[in-house]
Design a protein around this nucleic acid. Structure first.
Lengths: 147, 147
DNA sequence: TACACTAATTATAACGATTATAATGTAAGA
DNA sequence: TCTTACATTATAATCGTTATAATTAGTGTA
């Protein structure tokens, strides 16, 4: 499964004339296999064992490259740093306000919202973004215990 | 209308034991009357004529106070700085990717999404966030002219 | 395979938004 | 009026991200 994703991603990059460097390969691989939604620094720290000389700038540069190739999405929540998400199929995120955990959540498209928005505002609507906030089960039971 | 909002906001603050200083009054007033969704710096610059000695920290501090009182929402989009929105009734935002303009957009609640998310993930869902992205009419016609 | 050209990486400095700190000022109650 | 706690100010510090310049390494071609 994820091997297919990696292969597809590399194909996409190659077809747009982007070189496949070991660092890029590793960043992509890490993002595909990681279930969390890592920050640039997460990625940097995860790979500094294998690439002791890698620079943070490389991570940022390549995340930008991947973003413009449509392979990766940048998630900006309230906290200080962006998180990055490998794009597979469309899904939304459910976020825990306590521990920050992000869980994927599939939901049929909200095309109707886009249409209405376009109609009301006169915008040419391209896409939307939806996140759901709350508390995850672990944090719920933890705070229940604390009572 | 907006006078009512301001009065309500001041009431809310007073009831939670927050002092009404001239700076706080001015920040609230500015936010209520502004149709744009200002950054902290926008607010700072708008008020430095009336408060030549006001510090940026004051703006940030008070925005935090207003946020925890539920009067103000922080909007974090991709760009560098947060925008702040005085909370009136629930609405979503349609954002222009060209010029950054933000237009309000009313839409009946997406309660169903919240319910399903809660059911699938086991989260206690509190709220959600939805934004719609595209290009506004001005930017559309501008780029059409450029052709 | 070797060469040349261009893109990618590295190291580091710069930037800019936000927060922390300490000193000063001010509102409100005893 | 005095006191106490909260607000504001001025400034420094922090931290994520981006820019710059020098070096390194892929890739197409001979």
């Amino acid at each position: 499964m994820s091997e297919v994703h990696l292969k597809d991603a590399l194909e996409t990059l190659k077809s747009t004339g982007v070189r496949i460097t070991p660092q890029r390969h590793a960043i992509l691989e890490f993002m595909i296999h990681s279930t969390m939604h890592p920050t640039a620094d997460d990625i940097y720290r995860a790979l500094e064992k294998t690439f002791p000389n890698m620079s943070v700038a490389t991570v940022y540069n390549n995340l930008r490259v991947f973003k413009s190739a449509g392979l990766v999405k940048e998630l900006t929540y309230g906290d200080s740093s962006s998180r990055f998400d490998f794009v597979t199929n469309d899904h939304y995120h459910v976020i825990c306000n306590d521990c920050g955990k992000i869980v994927d959540f599939h939901y049929p498209g909200l095309d109707e919202v886009e249409h209405l928005a376009s109609h009301v505002t006169g915008f040419q609507v391209d896409y939307h973004r939806l996140e759901i906030y709350g508390t995850c089960q672990q944090c719920l039971s933890k705070s229940a215990q604390a009572q």
